[in-house]
Design a protein around this nucleic acid. Sequence first.
DNA 1: TATGTTGTTTATCGATCGATAATAATTCGA
DNA 2: TCGAATTATTATCGATCGATAAACAACATA
Lengths: 245, 245
Amino acid sequence: MADGRKTVQTRAKSDNDAPARKRLPRNEREQMIVREATRFFAEVGFEGQTRELARRLGVTQPLIFRYFPTKEDLIERVYQEVYLSRWNPWWEELLEDRSMPLTERLSQFYKAYTTAIFTYEWVRIFVYSGLKGVNINRRYLALIRDRVLKRIMTEVRAEQNLPTPEEIPLSEREIELAWGLHGGVFYIAIRKWIYEFETPEDIEGVLEATVESFVKGAPAVMRRLLEGDQTKAKAPGLSLDNSTI
Amino acid sequence: MADGRKTVQTRAKSDNDAPARKRLPRNEREQMIVREATRFFAEVGFEGQTRELARRLGVTQPLIFRYFPTKEDLIERVYQEVYLSRWNPWWEELLEDRSMPLTERLSQFYKAYTTAIFTYEWVRIFVYSGLKGVNINRRYLALIRDRVLKRIMTEVRAEQNLPTPEEIPLSEREIELAWGLHGGVFYIAIRKWIYEFETPEDIEGVLEATVESFVKGAPAVMRRLLEGDQTKAKAPGLSLDNSTI
DNA sequence: TATGTTGTTTATCGATCGATAATAATTCGA
DNA sequence: TCGAATTATTATCGATCGATAAACAACATA
């Protein structure tokens, strides 16, 4: 304001915290936007406003639209950022490495899996996109079922000297047993990052105990299922009326 | 209807689908709004717009604000509608009825619990309010922990002739074992209503198998925990860096 | 130092949101 | 049957949303 030059005015944008205009290479700025958008949407959901996102980035709102044509494009990019390449193929090898006891394999797997997946961003983005009805979630759960749960049940059968899946295919009930284990583990993350409820400090110890309980409990059920105890095989049919209330 | 009264004219608001203006007693209309709002918010989340809600109700948007001063007040009311009085005190008696085998008690409990809780509205409203950071969720999880999980672990101890919680308090690790069971069960609802993924038709059978697996697996872990196997008691500390990737 | 390229901001549009005030229509008791 | 009381609608406000266009400023190169 003193010397009347435009440049000075626009740069020293008052004595506020605003760190003045910073010009970045295209790749760098794009990465910055995606990273901040991930944090932002994980926190407030995908209805979060581009103006608030821009404020957190320290840039103006229209700049975002110079990098992503629409907000939906940015969201799509966030999906990729979160889900992409967090899958470790080694996990699958680990699960079927029979040189190790099954309990040890499952413990190691879930420790590695939760280390990779149990983050604020991953869990909340996953749930938000699930509520939104995005297809990514179904694809991911199918991945878990086919690459993890089926492997787990195959290994449980092997350790119990039960028929292989080639001889007798895995039943839905067996897969559901594995979902019980997996869901119980994932629910720790839901408690922590969706409900903000207390979770154990020593997650690894809890995983060990959970796995041990599974390995000691599931085989008995499987033997019953496979060795033809039909008395408990009830007719299908879901009764979900609220008659209890 | 055939006598040409004014009522007839205004009611038959053209031959459109619009069911004409209907004047209702205050209580009735209020109940109708709350019920439809519950379905609506469960579907689209709390950012759902009052205009769309009004359209579904077949009334004008300002009418909603004649019954609820603000949208937030309506949401608060929806919370009450969903959570209130879905808790059945009989569940707690059931869990500690030692005239029944523990497996049978747990099966019956989870069948009754899921019958009352596993609804589209309940599950989605619960997750939406959790993401929003509402306190209700933490209160509810504390209820589950204190009235259900602690009871379950008390009964497991009793069946194994282990010390009562009065003699040796329940450890966090034991509670976590019960969370594993409970989370595994609730994850079925998450798969179905949050991710829209396949779930078993015969939920009751799955609950029986899951409970059986728990009752056969958990006691072994508990005996180890209680009988002083300290070798596996690792130092606390959560390692959640993504070093695996 | 001059100039073209490109990252960034300013200004603003049209649509949509929750909410309010004024008006109309329905119901029911005297 | 008439009019007060209550329910519902019409019209609209101010704020906020995603998105666009034009102007500006930083940097690389010559």
